[in-house]
Amino acid sequence: MSQYMKSFVGAVALTMVASTSAVAGSGVSGAGAVSAAQLLWMSADVSSANIFNRNLKKEKDPNAPPPESGYHDPENDGTHILQPPKEAYVGLPTTEFGNHVDWVKAIDQDKLSPRWDRFDSSEEPFVMDLDIVREVKASVPDVVFPHRQHTEWLACANCHPAIFVPQKGANQINMSAILLGQKCGVCHGKVSFPITTKTCTKCHSKPKPEDWSPPLSDATLKNPWR
């Protein structure tokens, strides 16, 4: 309540400031040269803060060649010898996020076969096909953790026991931890696919039962006006 009052008062005060500045502006303009101060005042007429997207960040060219990356130094000769990602990605299955390459499909479809051993290109990974389902309290689909895709790339020791105790349900995981770079977020959001609207259902892939509905919060159950 009091918050609304405050923002209302604030809005009135702002309008008053804006209109006095308009008056001040027109008063000075008769004096000849346009002063910097006047420009400042005039621009205060309408807030320039109302651009359409304030916080949206979009990737214009996610796979720019190194000299245009923004962190490679174009003054460095080596930078221009580095390979542009797009050149290497031709023919690989695509996604709409991360490197814009579907690395799992690329291996499944035999388009890529990265080495499992540093020297021996014929060595095969030890792939384990075991799905772990984690029920999620929220309305989003439950999480299925697939060992298969992970053991295509990683050794058991990359996750067990440092990141996850190898026992179903023994690990506390939530989205906050993941976004902070813990648990699944050690890799996802950094090197493996990122956490964005387009990837939620990659992890949250098991639909809730037909009769499922989100539990009501205490505040609702005890709401005297309900």
Partner: peptide
């Protein structure tokens, strides 16, 4: 600058993050 994309075309994560 270390490019993951370039290296994962050639090696699985295991090579660097487990073996090395």
């Amino acid at each position: 600058v270390f490019p993951h994309w370039f290296h994962r075309v050639r090696f699985r994560c295991k090579v660097c993050h487990a073996d090395l």
